[in-house]
Design a protein around this nucleic acid. Sequence first.
DNA 1: ATGATAATAATAATTATTTTCATTTTTCTC
DNA 2: GAGAAAAATGAAAATAATTATTATTATCAT
Lengths: 136, 136
Amino acid sequence: MIRTARYSKKREAILTALCSTTTHPTAEWVYQTLKPTQPDLSLATVYRNLNLFREQGMIQSVGVVNGRERFDGNAAPHCHFICQTCGAVLDLPEFPMKKELDQVVNEQYGLRVDHHELVFHGVCSQCCAAEAEAQN
Amino acid sequence: MIRTARYSKKREAILTALCSTTTHPTAEWVYQTLKPTQPDLSLATVYRNLNLFREQGMIQSVGVVNGRERFDGNAAPHCHFICQTCGAVLDLPEFPMKKELDQVVNEQYGLRVDHHELVFHGVCSQCCAAEAEAQN
DNA sequence: ATGATAATAATAATTATTTTCATTTTTCTC
DNA sequence: GAGAAAAATGAAAATAATTATTATTATCAT
């Protein structure tokens, strides 16, 4: 199941691109971002490597937003906020993650919990401001 | 935006089907379930109405599991558990939902929070038992 | 009953993602 | 360093879920 992954320039570039942003981009974004410096990059390669990184726990998926999967170069568990208006995904890194949550579910329901996701939905600051502006 | 003043048999059947199960089914499941009694039902109608119900707050989406969106006839906020092995989605209705979570994020980050999702991932009881069995 | 219009079935289209396969790159061995 | 084996890639085709289109049917106020 665990297979050895060789080095490749494309692979390195894809991981670097993802880790260089906090926007939780789509595969398409990574592809478009690398296009100028990697003209012969294929979108399939981006998908292939993002899936590989995720399987290896190097990155994580934030889930599907507006039909597209969003990736996070930070594999450490943390909360996210998703704007219902513009689809932006924000980190909530300082948010007090309850580590005992998993334990509680384990004990109370007899379920083997691996991890959990806590995602807030609402309207981001920029979209709030835009709304207020539109009402004037 | 969308007003649904009119009644329709298909619409009622779709909502009834979803609310009659706790399996958090896919649109396809609702379609196949209604097929025997509604032979001329279209899958597009199921999608259309599930989206309508969600927009109106009558149902909620649990998110995308294994590439397919899962729906919940219970619109009241509650936690879910998703089995990594079989994809089952379970309710955690008695779990102590922190209502102040949204408030905390609102105050700490200045974000207008509408709601949040708390989803646990792990292995359900049945799949745990199957694993244990396989090791013998 | 009728007419306006929403809802539907059937199908086509769309869109994100995955697979295929011939070619290229990387790594290993000498 | 050269050559072979294995893995990675690009390009295109395939897949799969969901949405849009269009002609038809159902609902409901009148």
